[in-house]
Design a protein around this nucleic acid. Structure first.
Lengths: 256, 256
DNA sequence: CGATGACTTGACTGCTGTCAACGTGCGTGG
DNA sequence: CCACGCACGTTGACAGCAGTCAAGTCATCG
């Protein structure tokens, strides 16, 4: 990552640090906000103490008060069916926003739980909203982020609806890879913070199928996997397996 | 539908008519907007001439200029995979909004095509955005609508990922039923404006499977189907089949 | 009246879920 | 330090749901 223009005054640097640490740097509410506005945005953000693995950030039905940006660690969001079965709806990596689905009814339709030690930034929604009234750039950015979320969900629907087990897992791995790359992590080597069961649940597959596919992918030289650690050896081929373009995913390409 | 408070002045009535005809009446951008604001909103909306069956409202990659609200008729949105296969992503009934996924990148990621003769309202986005800067109520409403879209997509993901063919079709029919009910149409009797192929494509099923399931549902007394016309005979049981609550779908329950 | 497209139905296959047994690594406590 | 338990992961056997291929029916329209 080329260091961004950091020749700035004091308080501004503080924010840069704050939001770089939070991975919010041009990500959560990317671009289109100038430094002064960013300062005001930063002022309303509350940094909470970390969650331990298994802790809930919020539960189903909790009143909606704030959006959350993952600063470090990772979360899963899930619903619970009437028979008590968990339904994993998504995973959230550093720099990603959680809770956008709660705005509509002022209540969280999903629960969010930490997959590992995780810290988040809390963005009180009423404050964000009134701030965005004053800052058209911010308002536009929020709309963009929500639109991107809809887009990503559409992508997931496509994967879940139309793809084979093999294609789903490949697409999942490519998606993770893209999202890690985007945040400056290695796109070819990372740890899965979720269990095989979570992955299977999310992809609509039995956990045994996920396990078998990892083995198969490894035998075919596509990747190397050992417990939670994954190394993508042939990203290109894996990508073709996924029947999806490699880079459209959560990338958004940050506009023109 | 009990006629809504129509004891109002002239121009206001016009809007009521306009937006009632457009089914926008408290739906596209529901509640939270007072009459005066609604007048200003109405002023930027462009009513276009109807699309014929098969016409495109927009295509993949088209520059994003406006959101569209279905006034009458219906649309499907779809992606096209590299091998030319169509992937149906959604159906849009009167009163529903299309194009929210295009805001992020100023470009439509999906194409939208009329399933029958269809008319839409065009809502130029830049005008909507600057208007919403002046009207906090409108801004909030837009966020709600987008949030609801995310919620609905999550619901679809769940259906596609975890459910059997039977459950998917049942959920699809219940969803249609809820959406028709919400707009004042019969929730138990309606025409499918899309083909079996479209339904199957959307649900991630072969069209033959969809056909067989319709037959089975009919034999089990759940519904009566003849070509495109469907009558739900046992909505309650169909709902249980879908493994989903009956009313959460696209309802949003229009807040408290 | 024939052509066309949409839909239905049947036969067969195969992917993927289920059930079950068996590793493997890690933390806890002796 | 070692033993144990437990959660997680892997692998195998088997079965069933749903896809594919194919034939046939029905409605609409020129």
């Amino acid at each position: 990552m080329p260091t961004r223009k950091q020749e700035k005054v004091v308080s501004l640097n503080e924010i840069k640090v704050a939001c770089q640490a939070c991975s919010l740097n041009e990500i959560c509410l990317p671009v289109g906000i100038d430094d002064e506005d960013m300062e005001r945005l930063d002022a309303i953000i509350d940094r909470k103490r970390p969650l331990a693995r298994g802790d809930h950030l919020f539960r189903v039905g909790d009143r909606f008060r704030a959006l959350y940006a993952v600063r470090s660690g990772s979360l899963k969001t899930y619903a619970t069916s009437e028979d008590g079965q968990e339904q994993v709806m998504g995973f959230h990596l550093p720099g990603e926003l959680v809770g956008l689905d709660a705005i509509a009814n002022d209540s969280h339709p999903l629960a969010a739980r930490a997959l590992e030690t995780t810290s988040v930034c809390e963005i009180p929604f009423d404050q964000l909203e009134s701030l965005s009234n004053q800052l058209p750039g911010l308002q536009h950015q929020i709309l963009r982020v929500m639109s991107q979320e809809i887009r990503d969900d559409e992508q997931s629907m496509l994967t879940l609806g139309q793809r084979s087990a093999e294609e789903r897992l490949a697409a999942f791995l490519i998606s993770l890879s893209n999202r890690y790359r985007r945040r400056g992590f290695s796109p070819t080597q990372f740890n899965l913070t979720m269990s095989r069961g979570d992955i299977g649940n999310y992809l609509g597959l039995a956990l045994e199928t996920v396990s078998r596919l990892f083995t198969r992918f490894q035998n075919e030289g596509l990747l190397k996997v050992e417990r939670r650690h994954v190394e993508l050896l042939d990203r290109e081929r894996l990508c073709r397996f996924s029947s999806a373009n490699c880079y459209p995913d959560a990338s958004s390409r940050a506009e023109s």
